[in-house]
Design a protein around this nucleic acid. Structure first.
Length: 890
RNA sequence: GGCCGAGUGGCGAAAUGGCAGACGCGGCGGAUUCAAAAUCCGCUUUCCAAAAGAAGUGUCGGUUCGAGUCCGACCUCGGCUACCA
């Protein structure tokens, strides 16, 4: 047997080529086998190439896929590209390269990088969301939504971002700025395509109980949907017969405590009811609110508002209460109007306090008098008081009683509200799927040559492109710039936009779909990627759905995962997919941070300031700034080397200046910080198997973990040792008993750990086995073979190579997973610790099957144990078989 | 402010309520070497010169023969979210 060194750069490309030639990972569609659909969230192929975060989740699923295949399961494990999106288009703007070219180039890089890591994808099923053959079906699903009344147009205030030249969805806006790029965002009204996701709100909520997802993710979706039950109550406006203000409340039981009404400044009734004396101030306030960005509205938490001068009639008492406008009432939620109950709502309490409005208690707790003053809003449930006939009712009973009374007198009714809004589905961009929709045009002559003003498009009569004409392709453009008119760049492609049919001119929709569209259903296309007749063959969908394991980042906890569930349910209703939910088990891999960095704070004169004396502030433009608390002077964070710091207590301090504590933290990898690790260079230096193994060995899959280049050398050393052991002259003898038992234990542990996605402990078990074999001059062949079989899912290249060198034909993927014998999991003898009053005072070696009496006798005979028992009174003696002897004395 | 998660050696971490720190990194010592790198062997939670021993899983309290693990209160860090009536 050869004794050359382990050389990943030589063996890895060879096995990758073998797998490709051999079609080793072609999906097994044998209906007699159990199936497993193992899916990664497909990446956006950015120009930066693969990030070390990608291979984390991808390695995890790859291990599961390889493990299951070796256990005889038919596995579907595909990969593809979420390739529409802004960066390719922005790159096009800067360089003049067509986004399709940039995208294909980036995909090629990603594909090469993923292949270099040895992932066992069935590459024959690769999908690309920008491929017209894929776009066809994305558009087909849109038509399905359109025909079901789930896609509609609306003129609504949207998040217009001039810098990006596009409208953003609420979830793409963070703190009043675009999530990508941080540009300011303004609210302007614009015609948009909307998807009626709210029609599915209840099902999206209820069916969360059917999936096996992380609890935190489920909670986030529940809160995002934000279902609340309450009542809609009508308030008449005094002096305006027929004008009613509807409010939504979850606390109809507090109706008697409503001392004023507040409208959102955008509320249309404001115009009508404001008294002449208040008009100027009210309109000015409303205009100011409209001009303020979301960010500004949020930054000043201080309550502001203006009285309209009008009064509402309390529906139960008939009392007149003032009507105000204030921006803490949101036009987008409920009815855009609230009955303010300052006694029992913190926001109303604050507002009433600021403007001197009356605060009344209408709920009390059991221990409190109805007359007790309110120091703050009492928001808990309790017992009604100062509520006329409802006094004494519990909150729940009072809600029901008051709602019933309002319904009886037609002044209110039960109502369910959701935080979830309909989904703004259009973007004013080039690089996305065109909508398969067109509109009739009124004009004299050819609209392609006429000025805009001479062409009138009837947006109120959208028509669907015939399904036989799909895909509707994007026109080739020279100029992708969005222009300051939010109509989008497609509006300039007049030859594409306008066309004639039956002698009549029509205009195509010039909006495009958001990036989410393609990623909403890609997991379906993987099942049947080449089908030209249907988006997926129903029999195949039935065979593979739902996805059994879905691994991806927690940043998609609401958006992608909610949108995909929504589309899936629509397709379920259409009879296209056989399950109500797309994804069974979901796991989020944790973030990989950069290497730990030590930061000292240095003042201008060079003195170092302890981090305990430093306070972080932010400058007006949002950048962080640091000040010494005592003097107020600014200090600059400065990187220091690990060798210069030492730990004192819980603090890291400068070794040379131990009073100065420094920050020790790992940060997110980012270009600007310069701590990005490139997977290519890790593969080059250590090999793909080492990278895979290291990422799995770092810690639990779901944990956030800092990168450590030094630690990769450790797993590489493990592979070197494994190589060395398995290329020794192997003994044909059966392993000795102790080793045999270790083998069985390791088989069980690795199998269990892989099933539980505990890759770090599986690897440590393999390290222990290798260490054990490393001490043997001629390790037993069967032991080495077992080691390699167990290692294969995690480090496939070295496993294939060693397996072949041991004289077996490839591929190791086709060799069944080793079995263990339960009788071999324990040794004949165990060492049992002996505790006296909770402290270990000795250990005894006893036969595993020994009786309690035997073990206790042996324990008491131990010299050191006996010393601690001497002269004491025995209270209790207990033997937990195989684990521990406990003795309690007095 | 709300929700979720996490606090264990110098570092990443491990531990069905039963020997805290497996495995790995780093460090120290030794072997090999002209020397170094690489490799191999040993040690490595803290206190004590060492043995015996004691302390020790963010803090305080509780349940238990026994708590890193279960319960209650709190502190710190990270992520998400943010006036949703």
């Amino acid at each position: 047997m050869s004794r050359e060194r382990y050389s990943p750069s030589e063996i890895e490309p060879r096995w990758q080529a073998f797998w490709e030639r051999d079609q080793t990972f072609r999906t097994d569609e044998d209906p007699a086998k159990d199936k497993a659909y193992i899916l990664d969230m497909f990446p956006y192929p950015s120009g930066a190439g693969l990030h070390v975060g990608h291979p984390e989740g991808y390695t995890a699923t790859d291990i599961v896929a390889r493990h299951l295949r070796s256990k005889g399961v038919a596995v579907l494990h595909p990969m593809g590209w979420d390739a529409f999106g802004l960066p390719a288009e922005q790159h096009a703007l800067q360089t003049g390269t067509h986004p399709a070219d940039t995208t294909q180039k980036n995909i090629a890089t990603f594909r090469r990088q993923l292949k270099s890591l040895g992932f066992s994808y069935d590459w024959s099923r690769e999908v690309d969301t920008t491929d017209p053959a894929y776009v066809k079906w994305t558009q087909w699903i849109f038509l399905e939504l359109f025909e079901r009344g789930l896609a509609y147009q609306d003129e609504i205030p949207v998040n217009w971002c001039p810098a990006l030249g596009t409208v953003l969805a609420n979830e793409e806006v963070k703190d009043g700025r675009s999530e990508r790029g941080g540009h300011p965002v303004f609210r302007v009204p614009l015609r948009q395509w909307m998807l009626r996701i709210t029609a599915y709100a209840d099902r999206l909520l209820e069916d969360l109980s059917k999936v096996s997802w992380p609890e935190g993710t489920r909670v986030m979706q529940v809160e995002w949907i934000g279902r609340s039950e309450g009542a809609e109550i009508a308030f008449e406006v005094e002096g305006h017969p027929g004008t009613r203000i509807e409010v939504f409340t979850t606390r109809p039981d507090t109706l008697f405590g409503a001392t004023f009404v507040v409208l959102a400044p955008e509320h249309p009734v404001v115009e009508r009811i404001t008294t002449p004396a208040r008009r100027a101030e009210v309109l000015a306030y409303a205009a100011r609110t409209r001009g303020r960005s979301e960010r500004e509205r949020r930054e000043s938490k201080d309550k502001t508002g203006e009285p309209t001068g009008a009064f509402a009639v309390h529906p139960l008492t008939g009392k007149l209460i003032p009507i105000w406008i204030a921006d803490y009432v949101l036009w987008g939620y409920g009815t855009g109007a609230v009955m303010a109950v300052p006694g029992h709502d913190g926001r109303d309490f604050e507002f009433a306090g600021k403007f001197g409005l009356p605060i009344e208690r209408v709920v009390r707790s059991a221990e409190v008098e109805a007359s007790a003053a309110l120091e703050a809003a009492f928001e808990s449930d309790g017992i009604a008081c100062h509520s006329g006939p409802y006094d004494g009712l519990t909150t729940a009973a009072c809600k029901a009683a008051i709602t019933a009374e309002l319904e009886r007198s037609a002044r209110g009714r039960k109502r369910v509200e959701y935080k979830l809004r309909d989904w703004i589905f259009s973007r004013q961009r080039y690089w996305g799927e065109p909508f398969p929709i067109y509109f009739p045009v009124r004009c004299e002559g050819d609209p392609r040559t006429l000025p805009e003003s001479a062409v009138s498009i009837d947006f109120s009569s959208p028509r669907a492109v015939d399904r036989s004409e799909l895909p509707l392709r994007l026109p080739d453009l020279e100029d992708f710039k969005p222009g300051e008119d939010p109509a989008g760049p497609l509006a300039r492609a007049k030859d594409w936009r306008f066309f004639q049919k039956d002698g009549q001119w029509f205009a195509r929709e010039t909006n495009t779909m958001p990036q989410w569209a393609g990623s909403c259903w890609y997991y379906l296309r993987f099942i049947d990627p080449k089908n030209e007749q249907a988006l997926v063959d129903p029999a195949k969908a039935k065979a593979w759905l739902p996805v059994d394991l879905y691994v991806g980042g927690a940043e998609h906890a609401v958006l992608h995962l909610l949108y995909a569930r929504f589309w899936h349910k629509v397709l379920y209703d259409a009879g296209i997919v056989p399950t109500e939910e797309p994804f069974g088990k979901l796991v989020h891999q944790g973030m990989i941070l950069g290497e730990i960095e030590y930061t000292a704070y240095v003042a201008e004169d060079g003195t170092r300031v302890s981090r305990r004396d430093v306070q972080e502030e932010s400058t007006p433009d949002g950048r962080p700034e640091f000040r010494e608390i005592t003097t107020g002077r600014t200090v600059v964070p400065t990187r220091v080397e690990e060798a210069q710091v030492t730990k004192v207590g819980t603090d890291f301090v400068l070794a040379a200046e131990p009073t100065v504590a420094v920050d020790a933290r790992a940060h997110k990898m980012s270009k600007s910080r310069g701590n990005v690790i490139n997977p290519d260079s890790v593969v080059q230096q250590y090999g793909a198997d080492s990278l895979r193994l290291y990422e799995m060995f770092m810690g639990p899959l779901e944990a956030t973990k800092p990168w450590s280049t030094a630690s990769i050398a450790g797993v590489r050393r493990f592979l070197d040792r494994t190589w060395a052991v398995c290329t020794r002259t192997l003994s044909p003898e059966a392993p000795p008993d102790g080793l045999e038992r270790l083998l069985h234990r390791t088989i069980k542990k690795v199998g269990d750990d892989l099933e539980g996605l505990r890759f770090n402990t599986a690897i440590s078990a393999l390290m222990q086995l290798t260490n054990e074999l490393f001490g043997l001059e001629a390790p037993p062949r069967r032991a080495c073979e077992t080691l390699v079989l167990l290692l294969h899912p995690m480090a496939p290249h070295i496993a294939e190579e060693l397996w072949e060198r041991m004289g077996h034909p490839p591929s190791i993927q086709r060799v069944p997973w080793p079995a263990f014998d339960a009788a071999m999991l324990t040794d004949d003898e165990v060492e049992v610790p002996v505790q006296v009053n909770g402290k270990v005072r000795g250990r005894v070696k006893v036969p595993t099957a020994a009786s309690e009496d035997t073990v206790i006798a042996a324990a008491r005979a131990d010299e050191n144990v006996a010393r601690h028992l001497d002269g004491k009174q025995l209270v209790k003696v207990q033997y937990v078989p195989g684990r521990i002897v406990t003795i309690v004395v007095k």
